[in-house]
Every structure is written in structure tokens, then in C-alpha cells.
Design a protein around this nucleic acid. Structure first.
Lengths: 158, 158
DNA sequence: CCTTTCGTGTTATATTATCACATACGCCGA
DNA sequence: TCGGCGTATGTGATAATATAACACGAAAGG
């Protein structure tokens, strides 16, 4: 199985793995994976798709957490800042990081048919984007790479 | 001079070139480069930077065009749909296309120091991103590639 | 002349995101 | 033990970004 799959993998296992990795990471870095933060990560992992901040907020509210936007945004910011989740700019939505620990730039393949988002990583230092930046004397910080198109399943359906 | 420069180029010339290219393109494709649309493209070209929709709207309003958001959004949508401008998702802002006519995916280098945005293009079909998509059986549609970092000038200053 | 299409304009509203301030809790040094 | 400090949570209010829905007018084509 590739690291880049759209539909066929053990979803509950990846959710558990992901949460364990997050706990580990927070222990290592001295970060607090508080109840709200942990729950938001779980929601993203359970949903296994890009979710809007207000969608997350609705779920939090229903579970007795704070009900105002900053509650969701702060938890999401924490997760994103610490590499546990990503924001998909194109969708104004958030998704659990599928490959925690990787130091490469995340790349998202977004299916316009079913909305599924697959994550992989790319080493920017080397390759075309690296060349482009080097030639321009540009020092790369963070990168947003989001590709819209059709996943294998939706291609077959069409 | 590279096609990817941050600060040193003939700005008024590029603005004129850009407008001429837009007129040409609209003639060829049977599109209407109406006064609002043309003016918005000019504003983006004159600003030579990413501008928010409401910033554009304020300028339009001051010049006697309609004063409500759809006026700006519609003109911007037209320009983006027809390859005359791009939306920088990361900034929720718009910029004139610096390389009109190119059929490759636009790549933006965004300087976090001075806010300057440089545009270049990348052929996705071939290269790493193409490989990634191929391996996953993913059919590439449109791509968002936005790299934040520091331009040469801001690196020297630091 | 009539109809259709497209573009513009308006009002109203939806969606996404942040500010500002209050409270609580743990830690740690005085 | 207590006070100060940093951090996290919660709140109400508001900002920033974007779209829906509808009216009008101009141009094209029968």
C-alpha cells in the first residue's frame, strides 16, 4: 500500500496510531494535549476528512466544551502549529496530519468528486521548487501545495 | 533577468504589457474586458502585489463603480477564471497574472518580510508532483502552490 | 419586436476568523 | 503560604471574507 491512498486502508487503526503519535509528540516537546485539543484531533481523525472550524465547533459545543469560535480556532491553531493537523487553504478547512513527524512540506490531493483529501509529503529543498527558490535567492519557509483533481474511484465512476 | 524577480524590474512596462496581453486574450477568446474588469486588472497591475477583494472594492467605489462586494468579486472571478489574475489562497488576496498565456501551474513565492509576491510556473505533469499523482492514480486538475519565505532583499536586511 | 444572454447594480446574508477581556489552574520563587 | 506568572479556557462582540437573490439595462439574434 502506498502512503497515498484515497479509500482503502484501516481507518480505525490510523486514527489510533495518529492519537498515539500526538501524545508522544506532546510529551517529547512539553506540549499540553488538553481535553479540547485532544478531542479536536480525535474529531479530525474520526472524520478522516477536511472539516471546517465551525463544524468542529458544533461538535465541541454538543459535547459540553465552549461554544464560541475561539474555542475551536485555538485548538486548531495549536494542532496546526505543532504539526498535528494542517489547514487546507483552498477549502478553509482542517485535517489531521496523516504523516506526523515528517519534516517535509505537506502535499494534499483533493478530489473534487468526493471531497476526499489525501496527504503526502515533498522535500522542497531538492527538486524543481527548490531550484526555483534557489535561483531567485528565496529562502523557503512553509509551503502550501494543494492539488485538486479526481481520485481513482471518481475517475472510474465518470 | 530571471522570470522570477522580487524587486528589480521595469514596473510600468510590465503593467502595460500585462494589459495589452489581457486585451489580446479577450479578443481571441471572445471575452468582454469591460470597464470594471479592466480597471480591476489595472489596479492589481499597478499595485503589483496581492490585494484583498475589499481593498479593490474601495478603489472601485472611489472611482464611481458599484460599491458592493459582488462588484469586486465578480470582476476578480472573471479575471481568475480567464487566467488574467490569480487568487493567493494563503492570503485571501488577488494578484495580476505575471505570465499570462502560460498553461502551467502557477507557483507563488510570498515574502513574509515585505509581502512581495513573485510568480513563476511549474509543469506538474512531469516532476515529483506528477509522479506522486500518477502513483496514486490521481488526475490533476488545478494546483495551488504557495511558498512563504524570505526574498533576497529581506534576507540581507536580516 | 420579442426573447435571450450577459453584465452591472443593489440589499441582505452567510461564512470564516479575530479581538478583548474575565476566570481558573498549576508552577515556582519569596 | 502566598503572590505573581504563564498558560489555557471561556465569553460576548466584532472584523474580514464571500455569496445569494433579485432588478435593471444593453446588445445580439430570431
Amino acid at each position: 500500500m502506498s502512503d497515498l491512498d484515497f479509500h482503502d486502508h484501516d481507518h480505525s487503526a490510523c486514527r489510533a496510531t495518529l492519537l498515539r503519535a500526538a501524545e508522544q509528540r506532546c510529551r517529547d516537546k512539553g506540549l499540553q494535549l488538553t481535553p479540547v485539543r485532544r478531542r479536536v484531533l480525535e474529531l479530525l481523525a474520526e472524520g478522516h476528512r477536511a472539516m471546517g472550524a465551525y463544524e468542529v465547533l458544533d461538535l465541541l459545543r454538543a459535547e459540553g466544551f465552549g461554544s464560541q469560535p475561539p474555542v475551536a480556532y485555538r485548538a486548531l491553531d495549536f494542532l496546526v502549529s505543532n504539526g498535528l493537523a494542517h489547514k487546507i487553504e483552498r477549502l478553509n478547512a482542517f485535517i489531521a496530519c496523516a504523516l506526523p513527524g515528517s519534516r517535509h512540506a505537506p502535499v494534499f490531493l483533493i478530489c473534487t468528486g468526493c471531497g476526499t483529501v489525501a496527504e503526502t509529503h515533498l522535500d522542497l529543498g531538492d527538486g524543481r521548487l527548490g531550484e526555483i527558490a534557489d535561483r531567485a535567492g528565496f529562502e523557503i519557509g512553509r509551503a502550501v501545495v494543494e492539488i485538486e483533481g479526481r481520485c481513482p474511484t471518481c475517475r472510474e465512476a465518470a
